[in-house]
């Protein structure tokens, strides 16, 4: 990787941005996402009938959700049918797994914060994000994770006195 050629004109710059864009996933992924929404809309419509649609003069609890469900079904069906015109979805890449790991640390935080406080799950989250998702060094990750939790303790527990569950 040598010194990159510098884009000079707006056109070159736009081209460069275009080239750096993440790989597109193609229309199939738009169609799949839209199909999920079609099913969701259909389920909403069924549930709305159960809630009671009422009449136009006396709208029931289900009338508005029924309209939304119908709108979702119609708009997503159009989306499925015209999906080949869309190329704005992005392909999942190998680093997409990192997102799942990141989400996992957050869910873990949410699951245990009520019982053991925020310090341990917070430090684990910070460490995983620094070391494995951010590829920082072991040293910096360890020190960073501890420093962050200490700082958060000082700010949220001691200074702001928020009721966030804490161990110490």
């Amino acid at each position: 990787m040598s010194a990159s050629h510098e884009a000079r004109t707006p056109e070159e710059l736009a081209e460069q941005w275009e080239a750096e864009k993440p790989p597109a996933a193609g229309p199939l992924s738009t169609a799949a996402a839209a199909a999920v929404v079609v099913l969701l809309g259909a389920a909403v419509m069924v549930a709305s009938f159960r809630l009671g649609v009422g009449s136009v003069q006396q709208p029931g609890a289900g009338l508005w959700p029924l309209m939304i469900g119908a709108f979702l079904v119609v708009s997503s069906t159009v989306l499925v049918l015209t999906a080949r015109r869309f190329d704005d979805a992005e392909r999942f890449v190998s680093s997409s797994w990192l997102v799942l790991v990141g989400l996992g640390t957050m869910v873990l935080f949410a699951l245990v914060v009520g019982t053991i406080g925020f310090e341990i799950p917070g430090a684990v989250l910070a460490f995983v994000w620094l070391r494995f998702l951010g590829k920082e060094s072991w040293r910096l990750s360890t020190i960073g994770a501890v420093a962050m939790v200490v700082a958060f303790y000082l700010i949220f527990v001691l200074a702001l006195q928020t009721p966030i569950p804490h161990l110490f």
């Binding site: 957050m106 989250l125 910070a126 620094l130």
Partner: peptide, 15 residues
């Protein structure tokens, strides 16, 4: 680096 800011932002959001 963004890699250092990200966990801070996440923790602020969750708390």
């Amino acid at each position: 680096r963004g890699t250092i800011l990200a966990p801070i932002t996440v923790l602020i959001t969750l708390i």
